[in-house]
């Protein structure tokens, strides 16, 4: 099923949660809504689910207006950040709930319900927990049960609100891969909300980056990482060095000194130079276009992270290959390999 949002606006009092959002989700897609807290991503998800109503705009499911149907009629599977399992029911009854509350004329028989629940518990690999109560499960298990419960009604759309938000780092990583595999096998149009860029980039087919109630960029994980459309996206995704620069007379100036880099379409005026940490090449003191002294070095993983105090005043952190020896006090020259200049300070 395709989902389309057109000009969706939603305010909570004076706070504008969504400020004109347009989005199309293709059938069978796995989409991530990524943004900092307060960016409106959860509000958008809740509006699609029918748990919240927009002040203006449209939501279309397969081209049909979804707003004249409530949450109950939308047939949307929703997985909550804190699971929202029914504490007084065991795992089996939690998963069976959606089947038991169906209108009598389409309700399945007890045997059919049992078979379906068994199938779902097998799918989330937790069939051995059927008799337990939610409080006896770990966070990861609860999340998978919540997912099984949402899938029981054979939803046309699956929505997940920060599905791994409350889990520890290791379990998150496992569940990420598991979710991708699961989506592949059930192939339901799915949207998940996250503030974790790694999660979004690793799991989703497409990533929607949101900030302050607006969509900043929609694209594949490599699109949003390699070609950020806005300063916000560049700053939010991946780790970037940001330097306030001035574009005048076709040259980029840092603190009044021209830099040896092309303007590349940056508009004249106060701007910001964005460089990924690993895209800042490090060389001898007389090379490059930026100069400074190493003030701190940490080595871990495949790179070493060096803190460099620029002669222009700011301090930046760069990632350098480990085979290049860096010591505190070394004077170095720097040159950005890839960079972007966005208007605004």
């Amino acid at each position: 099923m395709t989902i389309e949002a057109r000009g969706v606006v939603k305010s909570f009092g004076a706070f504008k949660a969504l400020d004109g959002v347009d989005l199309k989700v293709a059938n069978g897609e796995l989409l991530a809504l990524l943004g900092p807290s307060g960016s409106g991503k959860t509000t958008l998800l809740r509006i699609i689910a029918g748990l919240e109503w927009p002040d203006a705009g449209e939501i279309l499911f397969d081209g049909e207006n979804a707003l004249d149907r409530g949450a109950r009629e939308r047939h949307v599977g929703f997985v909550f950040q804190h699971y929202a399992l029914f504490r007084h029911m065991n795992v089996f009854e939690n998963v069976a709930f959606g089947l038991r509350v169906q209108p009598r004329r389409i309700r399945k028989t007890e045997a059919q319900i049992r078979a379906r629940v068994k199938e779902l518990l097998d799918l989330v690999q937790l069939d051995w927990l059927a008799d337990r109560y939610p409080s006896q499960l770990s966070g990861g298990q609860r999340q998978r049960i919540a997912l099984a419960r949402a899938l029981a009604i054979e939803p046309r759309i699956l929505l997940l609100d920060e599905p791994f938000g409350a889990l520890d780092a290791k379990v998150r990583k496992e569940l990420r891969q598991w979710l991708r595999t699961l989506h592949h096998s059930i192939n339901v149009t799915s949207i998940f909300v996250t503030h974790d860029q790694e999660e979004a980039l690793e799991v989703a087919h497409r990533v929607v980056v949101m900030d302050k109630g607006r969509i900043e960029q929609v694209g594949s994980p490599s699109d949003v990482y390699d070609s950020p459309a806005t300063a916000f996206v560049h700053g939010f995704i991946g780790e970037s060095i940001m330097l306030p620069v001035e574009v005048t007379g076709g040259a980029v100036h840092l603190n009044g000194r021209p830099l040896d880099i092309a303007v590349e379409g940056g508009a004249a005026g106060a701007s910001t130079l964005f460089v990924r940490r690993h895209d800042m090449l490090i060389g001898p003191a007389d090379s490059g276009t930026l100069h400074g002294a190493v003030t701190h070095v940490r080595s871990f993983g495949p790179v070493q992270r060096a803190e460099i105090a620029l002669t222009e005043g700011s301090t930046i952190e760069i990632d350098a290959p480990r085979d290049r020896e860096l010591r505190i006090g070394d004077r170095v020259g720097l040159k950005p390999r890839h960079y972007r200049i966005f208007a605004g300070g």
């Binding site: 689910a49 029918g50 748990l51 409530g70 949450a71 109950r72 939308r74 047939h75 949307v76 599977g77 929703f78 909550f80 804190h82 929202a84 399992l85 029914f86 709930f97 959606g98 509350v101 169906q102 419960r149 949402a150 029981a152 009604i153």
Partner: peptide, 12 residues
């Protein structure tokens, strides 16, 4: 959220 979950599962 418990009630919202129930509603999205189709409960009256």
């Amino acid at each position: 959220e418990i009630e919202e979950a129930a509603a999205s599962l189709g409960a009256s």
